[in-house]
Simulated scan of single mutants.
Amino acid sequence: MADIAGVVVSPVLQVAEWLAVPIWRQFKYLLNYTTNFKNLEEEVKKLEYTRDKVHRKVTAAVRNVEEINQNVKDWQKEVEKTITKAEQMIQEKANDPRCFKGLCPNFVIHYRKSKKAFKLKHDDIDRLLQKEKELSPISKPSNPPDRRFISNEDYLTFESRNSLVKNVWDALNDENVYMIGVYGMGGLGKTTLVEELGRKAKEDKLFEDIVLVEVSESPDVKKIQTTIAKKLDLKFQNENESEMADKMYSRMKDNNILLILDNIWEPLELDKTLGIPRRADRGRNKLLFTTRNLDVLERMGSTNNFGMGILNKEEAWTLFTKMAGNCVIEFSFVCFLDQHILILFFNSLM
């Protein structure tokens, strides 16, 4: 019988032992009601301090025009949500209902809230505090948008230029066109025109990237390459110009990039020197040039070229009044200017 009793009693004791642990754990929630909330309040303070510390780093990075990493943004959102949840829980504790006309606490509610407070601290807050150590780096260098493609309130449309604008815009939208040229005497507003078209193309999301580089009369190949690379998030280290060109070619090949080369004086070796893809490897890339000389465009292989003429009398006067403002009224001598001189003067300012 003893053996039989032993066999019967042993499993019973084992089951009782198994049950004792979870029962005691549940009882501890009730027993540690005050302690769990005190710990929660202390951890919330730590999390708030950590949140503010990260926020200061984020603010400094944003002011330095850096891009905040997504894991940092996600952490900040989760922290705010957790702090709000904890503060609501702590506030509700202060308004706990009591049993027997307020003579004793409501143990059922105490148990539930104590368990929630414990789990919120250990499962959420402690995890977020630990995760904060893994947030470094907070940010990465960004590529600020080109301010030349931001809406220009001073940009004026002129009827004499409407056809030119339409032709260039149509060429930008034509998949069969690779190179586009705008040519005309200096000061007519070629740069202003391509900037506005670039802004419109960016607004319409016509290209994945839009890069504008001023070439100038004495082009610096390395500077041009570096400028393009920076806008395309392409990093050079110790490469020579030829190696930079190879790397540039690989970056741009089969892509959808609008590259605007402004103020070209002499033909450029696009693929060999700069690393700009040939027509066969262009993908959806497009090249938009401005120059004073049509011959420059033709020698570079551009066949879609559009000339820019001077403004007519009425347009020149509109531009003058826009630029001069109140001076038109205040200085009467303007009225005596010969209209032809006025046209040439303001065409030279554009």
Rank of each mutant, 00 (worst) to 15 (best):
N238I: 02
L288A: 13
N32C: 03
T157Y: 09
R251T: 12
E66I: 06
E43N: 15
Q88Y: 04
T59I: 12
L294H: 14
L129N: 13
K133I: 03
V211G: 03
D271C: 03
R56P: 11
K202Q: 12
D281N: 13
E41D: 14
N162P: 00
T318W: 08
P144Q: 12
E195A: 00
E239D: 14
T321L: 05
N32T: 09
V177D: 11
Y249I: 02
F346W: 07
N106E: 10
S242Q: 15
R251Q: 14
S348N: 14
N326P: 01
V168C: 10
F333Y: 10
I276R: 01
V221A: 15
V296F: 14
F306H: 15
L197H: 05
I343V: 15
Y111C: 09
L19V: 11
D220F: 02
E87R: 05
D124G: 03
E203I: 00
W265N: 05
F100E: 05
R161W: 13
S10D: 08
S216T: 13
N71A: 11
K57W: 07
K235S: 09
S139T: 08
V7L: 10
K190Q: 09
E298F: 04
K223I: 04
R279D: 14
K133T: 10
Y33V: 07
E241N: 13
V213Q: 08
G102A: 01
E87P: 00
M248H: 05
R278P: 02
